[in-house]
C-alpha cells in the first residue's frame, strides 16, 4: 500500500519538532521519540491505510508528533486533544512551524469530558497514552477503551511490551480484536529527576485494536 511521504523524510520532519517545555510527572509526559512517531505513522498508513484521507483523533497529543506525522502522511483532518495547556502551546507552535493547517486542538480531559457528540465519529484514533505507571495505574487501558468508543475502525496505540499479555486479556474482555503490528525500542531520555540512568531503552509495542466488524 502506498504512502505519500517516505519514512526517512517523515522522520527528518519529526526531528525538528519541539518537545514538552516542562514535562509534568503527574501526567506522565514522556515525548514520543521522532523515530517511533515516524515508524508508527508510516506503518499505520502502509499496512492498513488508516491515515490518508481519514478523520483522525490524537488522544493525549502532547507536543503533537503523532498529529504532525498524520497530517504529513495525508490525513484529511486531525483533531488533537490534551488536558495540559502548556503541552498544547508547544503543539500549536509545532503545527505552525510545519505549516500544517488541517489540524485542530481541544483542551479537555479525554477520559472524563464526553467532548464528542457521536460515538464512532473518527475513522482512526492514534495515541501514545500515559504508560500507567506510578500513581496512574490503569490509565493506559482507560485511554484505549475511550479511543475504541470514538472510532469506527481502528485505534493505534503505543504500550510497553511488558503489558502485552494484560492488553490481550483486556481486548478479549471488551469483545474487540487487536494485535501488535510493530515492536519498537523507545530510547527514553532521563526526563525526570528520579531517573537514575541517563536514558533507558524500553521495548514498546504498536498495537492495532479494532471493532470486530471492521
Amino acid at each position: 500500500m502506498s504512502a505519500t511521504i517516505k519514512l526517512k523524510t517523515l522522520q527528518s520532519y519529526m526531528q525538528d519538532l519541539k518537545g514538552f517545555s516542562e514535562p509534568k510527572i503527574e501526567l506522565e509526559q514522556y515525548e514520543t521519540p521522532p523515530h517511533i512517531a515516524a515508524i508508527a505513522i508510516y506503518t499505520i498508513q502502509t499496512q492498513f491505510e488508516s491515515i490518508e484521507d481519514k478523520l483522525v483523533l490524537d488522544a493525549g497529543c502532547g507536543p503533537g508528533s503523532l498529529t504532525v506525522g498524520a497530517a504529513l502522511m495525508g490525513a484529511a483532518a486531525v483533531t488533537a486533544v490534551d488536558i495540559d495547556c502548556d503541552a498544547l502551546e508547544v503543539f500549536r507552535h509545532n503545527a505552525d512551524e510545519m505549516e500544517i493547517t488541517n489540524v485542530d486542538a481541544v483542551q479537555c480531559d479525554f477520559l472524563e469530558s464526553n467532548f464528542c457528540r457521536l460515538n464512532n465519529y473518527y475513522d482512526t484514533v492514534i495515541m501514545n497514552p500515559p504508560f500507567g505507571t506510578k500513581n496512574n495505574a490503569g490509565i493506559d487501558m482507560k485511554f484505549l477503551r475511550k479511543g475504541l468508543e470514538l472510532c469506527n475502525d481502528s485505534v493505534y496505540s503505543l504500550h510497553k511490551s511488558s503489558t502485552r499479555s494484560h492488553i490481550q486479556k483486556k481486548i478479549k474482555e471488551w469483545g474487540v480484536k487487536g494485535n501488535v503490528i510493530a515492536e519498537l525500542r523507545y530510547d527514553l531520555p532521563a526526563t525526570y529527576k528520579f531517573h537514575r540512568q541517563q536514558s533507558r531503552d524500553i521495548a514498546v509495542d504498536l498495537w492495532r485494536i479494532y471493532h470486530p466488524q471492521s
Binding site: L88, E89, R92, D104, A105, V106, Q107, E112, S113
Partner: peptide, 14 residues
C-alpha cells in the same frame, strides 16, 4: 484562546 477551546472542568462541575 489562540484557537484552542478550553473544555476543562473543575471537579465540582463534573
Amino acid at each position: 484562546s489562540k484557537g484552542i477551546p478550553n473544555m476543562l472542568l473543575t471537579e465540582a462541575e463534573v
